[in-house]
Design a protein around this nucleic acid. Sequence first.
DNA 1: TATTGTTATACTCTATAACTATA
DNA 2: TATAGTTATAGAGTATAACAATA
Lengths: 169, 169
Amino acid sequence: MSATPRIKARAAKALRPRDSASRADRATRTTDLGLLPSLLGYRLRLAQRAIFTDFVSSMGEAEISPGLFGILVIIEANPGLKQTELSIAAHLDRSSIVPVVDKLETRGYVSRRASAIDRRVNGLWLTSEGSAVLRKLKRTVIAHERRIARRLSAAEQQRLFDLLAKLLP
Amino acid sequence: MSATPRIKARAAKALRPRDSASRADRATRTTDLGLLPSLLGYRLRLAQRAIFTDFVSSMGEAEISPGLFGILVIIEANPGLKQTELSIAAHLDRSSIVPVVDKLETRGYVSRRASAIDRRVNGLWLTSEGSAVLRKLKRTVIAHERRIARRLSAAEQQRLFDLLAKLLP
DNA sequence: TATTGTTATACTCTATAACTATA
DNA sequence: TATAGTTATAGAGTATAACAATA
């Protein structure tokens, strides 16, 4: 199972007084996880979870998820791209991209501009505010990545990248 | 963004005729992902996604997610454990474990048995059907893992495990 | 006919808060 | 008072199907 932590949930959790830490510690140490720790899928999930959590907490007040950050990065790298192209690049259905772009548009980071050539198409662009925000977010994300990657030597980092790439179909 | 693929969605997607493959291929190759491919978090998500997808499709009619599978494994390894203990082991809130156990109980794989000593507590046990099903599931999961891991040498697999472990807090 | 974006809808997974029953 | 489980509720994230506008 193992939550993909929600953005708001994380923020609130820090102050939650509900469980005593000692109880939690004991149970975590005690419970046998069976064959799970021998499974690559399980290990991968734990690692991704840890990085996701660090990502979110390092974003602080910006309240942006890795997913939304990725969308901003892709739009910046491909100014004017169509929603359909974005959805493919992000491995989402084109209907799923709609609320995503809505959210970024509401926050004032992205604008849809109808194409003059093909009036079915919305080109996507960062607003100047979106550009400025993304500039800061990227610095934060790079710092977050460095903080994580510091646990590995440069050679290990490269090795990890290579090994992960081999897992892709 | 990048979906955690839903179980039912996957099954349906195989037959979905909506997009032509050629279009999708072109756009994937074309769109610039900016700094994303340099981020460990991004690579990790792709790898996890790939494994999750393979997991789900290899389960076929069993229709069990990695998360539910993990829950069954933990219960098997700790017969009679309390829901609270399970929730901690699975990194879930204790309220979130309720619908999870409900689902497994509905399918007849798990039973709650009230403790005689402390009547607040539900001990969790696999039913005999749950045991039998899990025995088969484990074989399937191990085959799935082998199929993935075959892309790596034994030494590489060990290396990957070690590197992933270093990423945990 | 095919494509683009959208809506309507539904589903999974998870959390917080407040409750009940025990201890 | 504290703990175990539950309910009520909400929200993120995503999909499928059907539709209108446009090509």
